[in-house]
Nucleic acid binder design. Structure first.
Lengths: 286, 286
DNA sequence: CGGGGATTTGACACATATCAAGAGCGGTGG
DNA sequence: CCACCGCTCTTGATATGTGTCAAATCCCCG
């Protein structure tokens, strides 16, 4: 794990407790039969039902309190990890706000998500030796470290945990499919409206206000996420404000008319494409 | 599973062999201790190393020949499944060519991929009762049916299989991240070039020509996949042909200058976005 | 041979990118 | 405490890539 910026403090030290084991790079933390520290337990976590442990339907068989080995406090501006860092752990966010992004060889950047409490990062790197994308901290928060080798071990004895991991990865695939749809078939106004409503729903699911919240990301980051230029994002937010559908005070947003925004999502379709059944072909050479 | 179009024939019937169990909807095929029919075995499959069984590094512990319960022949124009169909199985493609796509409530369509031999479909629906997207057959082929309950059972006794499933899902996440990058940060010409080269690489990985191949999908489907109109795709392919980088005879394509195409991918960047570290905020109300 | 869809190509419109300037905000140092 | 600096955000003017509309051609298939 790269330690950049102000990210250099383990939660254990921070919380004033003694860590059961080393917290950083080498191999995997030896926590086989050591008890998980109370502060890192999922059973007391407010967002557990959104996270790997799930809604508790099969709770009895998931060793939720052995899942997280360490918890770390990470600070705004720091990177949790970068593409190319060795892959060792899955991360689950307990609090804070983050962005995940890719950087192409030629410098192009694509923000792939804005994970927050209850979300996970690092699952895309399973099977790679190194992380495939970057995760940066936008708002200081706490992240639960789940060493992958540890997760594999636990999976061996808990079918329910295996299932939860599969579900979490599946959700991630669906989430990205949804973004593909936004990127590929929506116009700018629809994209921004969708973005705001989606954020709103995610805040709501975590018990925060769905109508009034902070944007922890910049216009430029929103733009990258939506495939737009920052100026376009800014203009559209100004327009939505002019129309009375939102109030936007730079990073602080209030949704005034959710229905209007929802309508805006459908506006300006680009494609219909309905399969015809007939499929002409020109075969190789022939 | 929806049975539409000419998709109404099980591979067993087709191959003239007796099926070991029912092949369709109800619960899950009872194949607990029945031997897997020879024709459905992974160990004899040409694309097994690209598929769930993997490259064989941990082959000994993966019950590869119990993985696939049935194999089906599916015909061009048919749907393997549609969004909303009950989720029961993962599908692995042995041959043929397919498209996966989403349809939004308002009718917008987004093609999410063009799976072919060695690829999988349905992993996005794990944890849902129903499939989240549609998969249509573009070129007749054979698909291996892996009932999810069956996979779960096998996973219980094979850590290596669990790992392979995780890897496959992880790869799918990375694949979609890559498409997000294409959709969000490339211009039309770069998108189409990237698409052709990517297809070329996938054919090469399967032992087919990397310079000459058929496009089983229409311009409209390519457009949907890349977030472009079909006319734009057509124009760009004409242009690439005019420039001597490809030869495009409707559905039959020859790549004449891969390097030129590769250069084209970098052209016309849209975003740079490098993190600044400073992160201004306007806190709630304040 | 005829019909229908796919593809190509052109003309044009328009959404969004690009370029540029100014304002707002937050932190820093005098 | 104020002035400055750097960054983000906003807004305007303009350029341009791509969508839209339309028509001709091609191709497959009956």
């Amino acid at each position: 794990m790269s330690v950049t910026g102000p990210f250099m403090q383990s939660s254990c030290a921070h919380a004033g407790l003694v860590a059961p084991s080393a917290a950083s790079p080498p191999v995997l933390p030896v926590a086989r039969s050591l008890p998980t520290p109370v502060q890192a337990r999922c059973s007391t976590c407010r967002v557990r039902r959104l996270c790997l442990p799930g809604d508790g339907t099969s709770e009895a068989t998931i060793p939720v309190d052995e899942l997280v080995v360490t918890r770390k406090r990470v600070y705004g501006g720091a990177h949790l990890f970068r593409a190319g860092d060795p892959f060792e752990s899955i991360y689950a966010f307990r609090s804070g706000f983050f962005k995940s992004y890719l950087v192409a060889a030629d410098g192009r950047t694509q923000v792939t998500g804005f994970p927050m409490a209850g979300d996970c990062a690092g699952m895309d790197s399973i099977g790679s030796a190194t992380h495939t994308q970057n995760v940066m901290v936008l708002e200081t928060g706490e992240v639960c470290v789940i060493p992958y080798a540890h997760l594999q071990r636990l999976s061996g004895r808990s079918p329910a945990l295996r299932e939860q991991v599969n579900r979490a990865m599946s959700r991630e695939i669906v989430r990205e499919q949804h973004i593909m749809m936004v990127l590929g078939s929506m116009q700018a106004e629809a994209k921004v409206s969708e973005f705001l409503l989606s954020l709103s729903d995610r805040f709501a699911a975590r018990g925060y206000s769905s109508t009034e919240f902070n944007l922890w990301m910049s216009r430029s980051e929103i733009g990258s996420y939506l495939g737009l230029q920052l100026e376009t994002v800014s203009r559209i937010m100004s327009k939505l404000q002019r129309l009375g559908e939102i109030r936007a005070n730079v990073r602080h947003v209030t949704l005034l008319n959710r229905e209007a925004l929802r309508t805006r999502i459908g506006a300006g379709n680009k494609q219909a494409l309905e399969a015809t059944g007939r499929r002409p072909l020109r075969l190789i050479h022939g």
